[in-house]
Design a protein around this nucleic acid. Sequence first.
DNA 1: TTAGTTGCAAAGGCTTTGCACGCGC
DNA 2: GCGCGTGCAAAGCCTTTGCAACTAA
Lengths: 152, 152
Amino acid sequence: MSDLLERLRGRGWRLTSQRRVVAEVLDGDHVHLTADEVHARAARRLPEISRATVYNALGELVALGEVAEVSTDGRAKRYDPNAHHPHQHLVCSGCGLIRDVRPDGDPLAVLPAAERFGFAVSAVEITYRGLCPACARPGPPAAPSNDVRAPG
Amino acid sequence: MSDLLERLRGRGWRLTSQRRVVAEVLDGDHVHLTADEVHARAARRLPEISRATVYNALGELVALGEVAEVSTDGRAKRYDPNAHHPHQHLVCSGCGLIRDVRPDGDPLAVLPAAERFGFAVSAVEITYRGLCPACARPGPPAAPSNDVRAPG
DNA sequence: TTAGTTGCAAAGGCTTTGCACGCGC
DNA sequence: GCGCGTGCAAAGCCTTTGCAACTAA
């Protein structure tokens, strides 16, 4: 994570306490927080941080390619710090849980050149949908959560 | 298209002129309109139709599985009437053009069972991003459009 | 020092909701 | 005629913007 901060500083990113906290909140695997969740967590350490600042920082991290925006539910966007580790998402239709997965092989190869209609395809986003183990089990499904994280 | 209306009536969908017009607007391949665009086109034939009614109808068509919601840009959702013909999307990073593509093979097979973390995977969404022929060509790129349609 | 950042509050885009009237069945 | 569907307008959620005060380098 301090790697990230170093890298950004090298690119001329002015390092403020607000930006540091935002970057720290967005650390780890299977992290897919909304802007509001990032703000809430950042505010635990820096109570006066404003939403606008969080949106600014997130937008810059996305523009710099350090964080990826994912819209899995059509509501608020989620921010994924795993941008340097190409991966796909497994999304539970029951509780909203999101897991990162990294199948072998080049996902771009899935679309034959003959079917690209002349497009210069440079990226592919793949989302698998289905029920997670907890929601697939008989009985009450896992409660939907606004704070979707990796289990355990 | 009248197939669609018949099917819906059979399911107890009360057939109003507003719903008929919405269904008609959403006819064809490579159609990916926003709710507002659907409303604008519907209003050409039925000037008094309200946005709320369009949203209601779209929501119902999605719930009934007749239309798919796609969020390709993080802005307004787009509605894709091609729900009965499984396909993927090719999205131009320059002008926003969206094309449907249907590679051979089962896209679900891309994710090995061993990497499903116990999820019962039932669907997969794939979006390819890149430049369309017009935007890849040197010179002024195609103007971004709020009315993204199939070329020609 | 000084240009870039922050916080606040207001505005903006997209979507949903509440309620009285209207219309398909 | 009944009950669902409609239109209107207001509210809601998420995000962006304008501007004066502040601060990292």
